[in-house]
Design a protein around this nucleic acid. Structure first.
Lengths: 175, 175
DNA sequence: CCGGCAAATGCAACTTGTTGCATAAGGCTA
DNA sequence: TAGCCTTATGCAACAAGTTGCATTTGCCGG
């Protein structure tokens, strides 16, 4: 259900194709949602057949046609319903933590490599966040409340990632 | 695959039934993994049929029989393989963040209720963590490296949750 | 004495997400 | 000129996780 909601939110802001949405996920929504193109295309088609979206095909000569999706009244209504009801707590699943519980069987070299690679991933994520901040939220003072809200989420994403980085570095130093 | 690994890790420490594992998930592994009993029972049976576990049935008169699972050689090998290969980065999916992107459509009352309830969930989680820390890691100085590793994961869980709490409170204060 | 909880297991149907493959044309680079 | 990236879409099979239902007995509280 959440994927549907995310799609409704982006398309309600601005109609677009599955491909467009994929780009948005990479650009400004990296800390909010990620999905593969297969999942997007399938879900968009389902939402259309459920009446939450309409679809207009723009023929292109030298590339596959673009299928532009727009949110319908029913779609907006579904979105409002989703917004009004509280989210279910999402279950904890930390495979990395699991490895720590098998400490004796986890070879030291694998451990080091894993943690190093992980730290690199985290740092890349911070770079992405910084890019988003520059592009979308360069002047936090000037933001309207509706623009300020997404900015908050980015800030939290950054703080959480920083907490992770600190932790990884502590653990690596200790061994 | 990660669920399998988690099961191999707990069962390798100590054989037990699906029900036992469920209790462990609630008690000392709350910040590592959560799964429903249906998922556990099904997965355990699959792992047995794949030769990673053996199963011994202890008949009980007045309750359903206990099916005690033990890790086999093949199971240990599967675990070691999993430990040796690095984890895939897990995709970002933050439905709460999504709601922030629909700020204008998110009614103020619903917002307030959602954030308040969410903060309560986080605080309960902190309480759970504190209980785990008391029960398992009351004397951090005295821990062996293999005991120290799980303790690290608990500490990170706490710090991340604290970061969330601070953020929620900031956001609530601002509106 | 009735209802719910704890112990202990399970099936069936469903939703959500992943993996592998496929198409088709143009541009870039080694 | 071969191979990869980008644009743009999709199917089919699978893995993972959820939801709803079902069973049996004993204990505990109201």
């Amino acid at each position: 259900m959440s994927l549907r909601a995310v799609l409704l939110i982006t398309l309600q802001r601005e109609p677009g194709t599955g491909y467009d949405i994929l780009q948005r996920f990479k650009a400004g929504l990296a800390h909010v949602w990620q999905a593969s193109h297969q999942q997007l295309y399938r879900e968009l088609e389902r939402m259309r057949s459920d009446g939450q979206l309409t679809c207009e095909t723009l023929p292109q000569t030298e590339r596959p046609d673009r299928k532009i999706y727009r949110v319908t009244e029913a779609g907006l209504q579904a979105l409002d319903t989703w917004l009004a009801e509280p989210l279910a707590a999402n279950p904890v699943r930390q495979p990395l933590f699991a490895k720590f519980f098998a400490w004796e069987r986890w070879p030291e070299q694998a451990r080091r490599e894993e943690l190093t690679a992980f730290r690199e991933q985290l740092k890349e994520r911070l770079t992405t966040y910084a890019a988003i901040e520059r592009e979308w939220f360069s002047d936090p003072q000037a933001l309207t409340p509706a623009q300020r809200a997404p900015w908050h989420t980015l800030r939290l994403g950054q703080r959480l990632t920083e907490t992770w980085v600190e932790w990884v570095e502590e653990v690596m130093k200790e061994e």
